[in-house]
């Protein structure tokens, strides 16, 4: 099977108050389609930086990042934007919903950008919101939803266009353990039923327990690359 994500000798350096910091130091990584993988590590280990590079939100200082066969370092901003739009879904720790759009409109946003016909959009979003347990809450604005409900909307938004990859940066960090478990169930179900590849960053042991593969980062380097104790692969 052709790898969905490939990182070769990726180094990322940036300056923090003028001091050079190496956030990632020679990362080699391959992720296959359909994986449900967690990137774990303490704060500052480079988890978010790794996800940003894979998501095309940032460029490596050295090395090569390839997503769905595309080398992100040679893509223009417009091409990167299109890659994110068509290939990747994002779930953020702080949900990052658009406050002036309803739950339905937030989930619909990417489909509208992709030019999906209205009828098809409606069917898909209504079905998705039902799947993530938000039936009846479609017309609520983010401020009218709980943290868990907002993150469900964010997940619905991320998978609405059926991307090949969902990148989730600490998606359960701002919700209670019950909601966290329920969100993980949801994402695992989507992984199993729709074959969506999930890549999380987290330092929550409860999330790590459910992962099928854990990539541990420390000081910008991968420590081991082992299988997690979660469900069997899809």
């Amino acid at each position: 099977m052709k790898a969905l994500i490939t990182l070769e000798q990726v180094v990322k350096e940036y300056r923090d108050n003028g001091v050079p910091v190496r956030a990632l130091d020679g990362i080699d990584l391959t992720i296959e389609p359909g994986e449900f993988t967690v990137v774990a590590g303490p704060s500052g280990s480079g988890k978010s930086t790794l996800l940003n590079l894979i998501g095309g939100l940032d460029q490596p200082t050295r090395g090569r990042v390839s997503v769905a066969g595309m080398d992100t370092s040679v893509l223009s901003n417009i091409e990167l934007s299109r890659m994110r739009l068509y290939k990747i879904g994002f779930v953020f720790q702080a949900y990052n919903l658009i406050p002036v759009l309803t739950a339905y409109e937030n989930a619909e946003y990417i489909l509208m950008l992709q030019g999906t016909p209205a009828q098809k959009r409606r069917e898909r979003i209504m079905s998705l919101l039902s799947t993530v347990g938000l039936k009846g809450l479609e017309n609520r604005f983010p401020r009218e939803l709980s943290g868990g409900q907002q993150q469900r909307v964010a997940i619905a938004r991320a998978i609405a266009s059926e991307p090949q990859l969902v990148l989730a940066d600490e998606p359960t960090a701002n919700v209670d353990s019950k909601t966290s478990a329920s969100l993980l169930d949801l994402m695992m179900e989507l992984n199993r039923d729709k074959g969506v590849t999930f890549l999380f960053s987290t330092h929550d042991p409860a999330v790590m327990e459910r992962a099928r593969r854990i990539i541990r980062l420390r000081d910008g380097r991968i420590v081991p690359d082992g299988d997690g104790p979660g469900d069997s692969p899809a």
Partner: peptide
């Protein structure tokens, strides 16, 4: 800016 960053991350073009 955070909202705009989100929109850009989701694939909204700078033009849009």
């Amino acid at each position: 800016t955070r909202e705009f960053a989100t929109l850009l991350a989701l694939g909204t073009s700078a033009f849009l």
